[in-house]
Design a protein around this nucleic acid. Sequence first.
DNA 1: ATGCCCTATGATATAGGA
Length: 261
Amino acid sequence: MRIATWNVNSVGARLERLLAWLELNQPDVVALQELKCTSEAFPTLAVQALGYEVAALGTGRWNGVALLSRVGLSDVTLGLQDQPQYEGADEPRAIAATCGGVRIWGIYAPNGRETDHDHFAYKLRWFQALRATAAAELAAAPDLPLTIIGDYNIAPTDADVWDIAKFVGSTHVTAQERAELTALQSIGLGEVLPRALKGEPFTFWDYRQASFGRGWGMRIDLVYGNAAFTSLVSDAYVDREERKGKGASDHAPVVIDLDLP
DNA sequence: ATGCCCTATGATATAGGA
């Protein structure tokens, strides 16, 4: 069984590349982030034609998450328990389903913007809600493989950005954000580290300043899972090739292969 | 090294991305 996570930066703008990527890579389950469309506007028919069931949660211009599965899609959950609001709105940033015997959460964590911005406090509260939601599911079904995949908007270590000196005072690398990752480990989730390709482990390269060609990347698309999940992992890697060329997302997909049929 | 921003919107500027 092959699962993947990919921040597509608009599923509408990326549809042609998404369909080609699905056909080439044959994932069984895919978590998508930054749909930038409403649930109704998701291109469901196009991905159904490739054999996938779809669960999508989007409100329009920003954010949005979806799960595609060709190994079943049941017990869909939209949003987190006690999910915090931002400026009075429930943002579409989390979706879960059980697919092929694996509980899969696809997430798009808030950016945070600046460390003194309201959005940063919101980001930390959001991770607390994610942790509480996951802890409740882990307690209810400890032996069910569970994974949380997606755009965490946190670089776990200094080596996960191209130059830590450029990030002094920035979001994505603070102790407070990294403490939220540590807290996920405290509830029984371990990180699955993808193989580094081309000597760099990154999953995101800004569109500006030809960052991809210069290697100015960050590893912020992450995979966590309980022991029942991580014990199944046979391979994990970043599909760096997908970041190349005209019309690419600014994020590359992360692929995880499991020892499951 | 695969290139010197991209996306959606009540659009012709703006907000957000990280």
